[in-house]
Design a protein around this nucleic acid. Structure first.
Length: 958
RNA sequence: GGGCGCUUAGCUCAGCGGUAGAGCGCUGCCCUUACAAGGCAGAUGUCGUAGGUUCGAUCCCUACAGCGCCCACCA
């Protein structure tokens, strides 16, 4: 006998281990249709958060659904080496030991990262197992960790090198000196996507630049005064009448002895600020472009000697003495000038060595002192910060590797346009398109140690040899001595290859043939650019195929109030705490662990105490998964509500108890397995079977449309509202039947419908369904080691029985009406009363229906008569019939109740009449709609008459 | 500045051209031998505002308001 209530902890882990050990998660048979999902590989440093749990619930539901449908499923999983994130984690550890990575040296440091990874990495994959993820852990697992592939392992790395070499050979990867976003703390370039630009409160300053000839000055505005030191020109708009005559003149750069020219460029907006812009080409993207347009490729550069690329910051963003970065200036051009000496100290000594923000302060003070500061005003500006360290990035001119994006981007746009890849919900296509249409070349080199080292070597002359190995490079270089490029690749460079590298590419493996393209990618909208777009481009380029057919963009998980989850607010939830439960004390400790500032702590504690006064209950993985499925609409956000989770835990308990009831009434008895014995099915049996077909169809449709909410809701209401609330109650009655064939039919239906419901639910709630199925299935004549590999229920339209559904609707209507009379008349549940009716229910099985109503509404008997007894007892109108619950009640109260009914019906009548009185409605609306309204009107009118009759009777009594 | 999305019951959300739905919450009455993590009954909405299209609009169109997200080189 089952326990009285559902206890998830008792079953979950045991089942998972059994499934995994039995190898049920592996793909099985390449002759069957393939179904493949690629997991967005979580960072090895990561722990499971709500977003993961949500995504993985959906992926697992799809995988389990397709596995049950007999598909050859392969959920390819793995972890990402997460270059920057992981390096930071290990560097922090070293910090605690008082060391930096430089103390260890590159080789030892990388060793250390690997060591860390083996010991504490991939804890996230262990957490995924708690959720029930039926992932193919052994697939592409070259490290034997049962965590899938690792993007730094040998086979994945091989693909990375191969891709790099091929792209280089095709001329799509190049090395160049470009302005890039530079993180001065990490000391590396980052890509455009890794920079978050937020509006912040800052200041804008206006600075005066005196003319060389002493004829006055002009003013420029800036939000970064420290860059004054690197100015090489002042620009105005060529159409700006005010300044046109100044072009070619020189101004003195404040705080220095340099003179810089006034130039003209369309980039300048004459209506903004003073209409004059300082040009700092080595430290600003716009200025760099101006410089390129006007000087770099312009022969007139000879006339503008000092307008070079002047760098004034080192790679940690401290002010240096100043250095010309473009060759023309660094060599002969500058040296030939007369005023060289002035230039020797490009940046005054006073500023050298200062951090960029200290330099800013000093420069402002000095400008003030020299009366060159015109104004200082508060200003909202967009500040670019590094996504990882949150420090302000500095545009820095450095040698980096880039991937040309134009051609691949065009192809990426085409495959989506052609519908080979579809976004779900569809509107994400616009986001994808917009980015690809405006894509810039991708800076892929990072000045880090942890990652795939770039397979490029240089000889002493700086000639580049890109090769698959050092040997290959040496072969190319001949006798020259080589040095390998120290940089590593952007993490996304390897992740973009996952759709094919995980399947064995560059080898032509059977799995590559079978599982590419995968069926659907389930991922967050935040990595459409980082990952989704790049996978599409790379996979197309190297395999000619798309990586996946569908991209399901899942909602962002927020807290119950719709707030972003963040540690500093204390509103984060750990999926494992929802599964296992957690006490308030433990939760408090956990929420405030590892915090830097004391002031947050109080606020977080307050939040936690008020939201989880008793901690969090253990809901179990099934309830958590069901909650995620129910909330998976196409909305952009998902507000995770604990009370919702509790509701679905209750649902699991309901299912558990329904099974408990069924088992109590069927185990050891005749459940109709012997086909030779007669079986009688009532319309109630046929009704529940009919309803089951409809739910099966709804589930199939829901999965096909990725409407997990619809799948969950339709099964939920079937199990609870139909099977438990009505069928089980009526089955109790049928089990009392003296007819063995009726009993047999009832047991058979009870068992079969339950067994099918378990299979229907299994993709969403795997644990409870497995546990119950093991007990229920044999009673339905089914055998199997696991529900996981049983066929998913399929709707059989021939079992839809509309007559039974209609009759059941009448049964429900009568029952509810009678119960309602009881309730309104405040009759205690224990008291049984007779019910009078003026007509029989319009059903095939009148006797059976009346018996059911009598039982469900707790009536002593049902009597049919021409007229109702002359009584003030409560009366209801059900279809053609009037029914009376035979108990004298206060006529005034009863009159009031009926008056309410009359008012409601009158309202309906008025609405219908108004519609029919409109000639154009009657003429133009479809006939069946008009007919419907007519029928509704006539029904309501009849009902009204019956109510009025009763009302009169009651009034006569007063 | 450009783009996308949202606004429906107290809360969180489905519905998207023909009598407004769910979960949670709320109100009564019940520990009725599957389940109090439950049963039965019930209340609750000028479907953001203003126009338009239509026989008919929560649903389609336009404008406006509020909220959210993404992209963008205005110093």
């Amino acid at each position: 006998m089952l326990d009285k209530s559902f206890n998830p902890a008792a079953i979950e882990q045991a089942w998972y281990q059994r499934w995994e050990a039995a190898g049920y998660f592996r793909h099985r048979d390449h002759a069957k249709p393939a179904y493949c999902i690629q997991l967005p590989p979580p960072n090895v440093t990561g722990t499971l958060h709500m977003g993961h749990a949500f995504q993985q619930t959906l992926m697992d539901a799809l995988i389990r659904y397709h596995r049950m449908r007999g598909d050859n499923t392969n959920w390819v999983v793995g972890t990402d080496h997460a270059g920057i994130a992981t390096q930071i984690v290990v560097e922090r550890q070293l910090e605690l030991e008082g060391k930096t990575r430089h103390d260890l040296g590159r080789e030892k440091f990388v060793e250390r990262v690997w060591q860390w990874k083996q010991e504490s990495g991939s804890s996230i994959t262990r957490q995924m197992r708690r959720l029930g993820a039926s992932a193919n852990w052994e697939y592409a697992d070259t490290e034997g960790q049962k965590a899938g592939y690792f993007t730094m392992d040998a086979s994945m790395s091989r693909a990375v090198v191969e891709v790099f070499v091929r792209l280089y050979e095709e001329g799509l990867i190049y090395r160049g000196k470009r302005l890039v976003n530079w993180d001065p703390v990490l000391g590396t370039a980052v890509s455009d996507l890794e920079v978050d630009t937020e509006e912040e409160d800052g200041k804008i300053w206006e600075i005066r630049y005196p003319f060389e000839d002493g004829s006055g000055s002009l003013s420029v505005a800036t939000t970064r005064p420290e860059t004054v030191l690197g100015d090489v020109a002042v620009a105005i708009n060529p159409k700006d009448e005010r300044y046109l005559k100044l072009v070619g003149k020189r101004v003195r750069l404040p705080l220095t002895k340099r003179y810089i020219p006034v130039i003209a460029d369309n980039y300048v907006d004459p209506d903004f600020g003073t209409g004059c812009v300082k040009i700092t080409p080595a430290h600003d993207f716009n200025d760099f472009n101006v410089w390129r347009r006007l000087f770099a490729d312009n022969r007139s550069i000879a006339k503008l000697p000092y307008a070079g690329l002047l760098s004034i910051l080192d790679l940690s963003a401290r002010v240096i003495s100043g250095q010309w970065l473009n060759e023309k200036h660094s060599k002969s051009d500058v040296a030939a000038r007369r005023d060289d000496e002035e230039l020797l100290a490009l940046v005054p000594k006073a500023y050298q060595g200062l951090d960029r923000f200290d330099a800013r302060k000093k420069i402002i003070a000095d400008l003030k002192a020299e009366e060159l500061l015109v104004s200082e005003r508060p200003y909202k500006l967009r500040v670019p910060r590094s996504g990882r360290t949150n420090v302000i990035v500095e545009p820095m001119l450095t040698e980096q590797w880039f991937v040309k994006m134009e051609g691949m981007a065009k192809d990426g746009l085409d495959v989506v346009k052609r519908g080979e890849v579809n976004f779900i919900p569809e509107h994400w296509t616009a986001t994808y398109n917009h980015w690809l249409e405006n894509i810039q070349d991708w800076c892929i080199s990072r000045q880090l140690w942890w990652g795939h080292q770039i397979p490029a070597w240089y000889d002493e002359d700086g000639t580049i040899y890109v090769a698959r190995s050092e040997q290959e490079a040496e072969k190319k270089a001949g006798s020259r001595k080589l040095k390998r490029d120290p940089d590593v690749l952007d993490t996304w460079f390897s992740s973009q290859l996952v759709p094919f590298s995980s399947l064995g590419w560059p080898d032509a493996t059977p799995d590559l043939e079978t599982f590419l393209p995968s069926d659907v990618l389930v991922t967050g909208n935040d990595i459409i650019f980082f990952w989704v777009a790049r996978m599409i481009m790379a996979t197309r380029h190297f395999t000619g195929k798309v990586p996946f057919r569908h991209v399901y963009i899942n909602a962002i998980v927020r807290d119950a109030e719709g707030e972003k989850m963040s540690k500093s607010k204390g509103n984060t939830l750990d999926p494992l705490d929802l599964i296992d439960g957690i006490s308030l004390e433990a939760l408090l400790k956990k929420s405030t662990a590892g915090l830097m500032k004391g002031e947050h702590k109080e606020r977080i504690e307050k939040y936690v105490r008020s939201h989880y006064p008793n901690g969090i209950q253990a809901f179990g993985a099934d309830a958590v998964r069901f909650t995620f499925a129910s909330l998976a609409t196409f909305s952009i956000t998902l507000n995770f509500d604990l009370s919702r989770c509790e509701g679905y835990r209750n649902f699991c308990n309901k299912l558990w108890n329904a099974a408990r009831f069924v088992l109590m009434n069927t185990e050891g008895r005749d459940c109709g397995l012997d086909e030779k014995l007669p079986v009688k099915l009532s319309f109630v049996d046929r009704w529940i079977v009919s309803r089951l077909q409809r739910v099966e169809a709804a589930a199939e449709q829901g999965f096909a449309e990725y409407r997990f909410d619809n799948v969950a809701a339709s099964i939920y209401s079937f199990v609870w509202d139909e099977y438990c609330d009505w069928y089980v109650e009526l089955a109790k009655l049928q089990l009392q039947s003296p007819d063995a064939a009726v009993q047999r039919g009832t047991r058979r239906t009870l068992v079969r419908v339950l067994e099918t419901s378990l299979r229907l639910l299994h993709p969403i709630t795997p644990f409870i369904t497995e546990e119950l199925w093991q007990k229920v299935a044999p009673l339905a004549g089914k055998k199997g080691a696991t529900i996981m590999l049983q066929p998913y229920p399929k709707s059989q339209p021939e079992k839809i029985d509309e007559a039974a559904e209609r009759d059941m609707a009448v049964l429900k209507e009568w029952t509810v009406a009678a119960r309602n009379l009881r309730s309104e008349a405040k009759i205690p549940p224990g008291e049984k009363l007779p019910l009078y009716t003026t007509a029989a229910p319009p059903v095939a099985d009148v006797e059976g229906t009346l018996a059911a109503v009598q039982s469900l509404a707790r009536l002593s008997e049902i009597k049919q008569a021409q007229a109702l007894p002359d009584s003030t007892a409560p009366v209801a109108v059900v279809g053609e019939a009037r029914i009376m619950l035979y108990k004298e009640v206060d006529p005034a109260l009863e009159a009031e109740r009926i008056s309410k009914e009359v008012a409601r019906v009158n309202g309906e009548i008025a609405k219908a009449k108004a519609q029919l009185a409109n000639p154009s409605f009657v003429e133009r609306a479809p006939p069946q709609v008009v007919e419907e309204v007519r029928k509704r009107l006539s029904n309501h009118q009849q009902e009204l008459l019956k109510h009025q009759e009763q009302l009169q009777k009651l009034r006569g009594r007063k």
